[in-house]
Simulated scan of single mutants.
Amino acid sequence: MQENNLQQLMIVCQQMAESGTPPSVGLLRARAPFKVSVTQAIEAIKRFNAANGTASKQVTEKPKETIASLTKRVQALEKTVEKLLETIQQLSEK
């Protein structure tokens, strides 16, 4: 495979990764700007994963928490801290 084609395929892999989609053979072949064989797609994905250290991390990675869920957690923690401070205040008055 020409090095230029490989670089173009790796750019497509990077774009997929940035959009949250792990590069796969089928997607890479569909999104490539030129006809790509299965072996070319596999080679490009292998090189992309090796360059980015993402060989199997994408499969086991948990979905990222949303801002809404984090906001709820912070609010719950703030309420807990408030209750703890009230308890400390009551204990120190005794």
Rank of each mutant, 00 (worst) to 15 (best):
M10P: 01
G53Y: 09
V25D: 00
N5E: 07
N52D: 00
Q40F: 04
L28A: 08
T60P: 00
V36Q: 04
A50K: 15
A50D: 02
V74G: 01
S56Y: 12
L84P: 02
I67N: 02
A55G: 03
P23W: 03
Q8C: 11
E86P: 01
A51G: 08
A50L: 08
T21W: 00
K64I: 11
S69L: 05
V81H: 00
R73F: 04
A68N: 07
S19Y: 02
L91M: 10
R73D: 15
L91D: 06
P63N: 04
E65D: 05
E3R: 15
Q7K: 12
T21F: 05
K57P: 01
A44H: 08
Q40P: 03
M1D: 03
T39F: 08
T80E: 02
C13E: 06
Q14I: 06
L9G: 05
K79V: 02
V74M: 11
C13Q: 07
K94A: 11
N49I: 08
S56W: 08
Q8L: 15
Q40V: 06
S19C: 04
Q58S: 07
T21C: 10
A32G: 09
V74H: 09
E65A: 11
K94G: 05
A32N: 05
V36T: 15
L27N: 12
S56L: 13
M10I: 13
R29W: 03
P33L: 06
Q90D: 10
G26V: 07
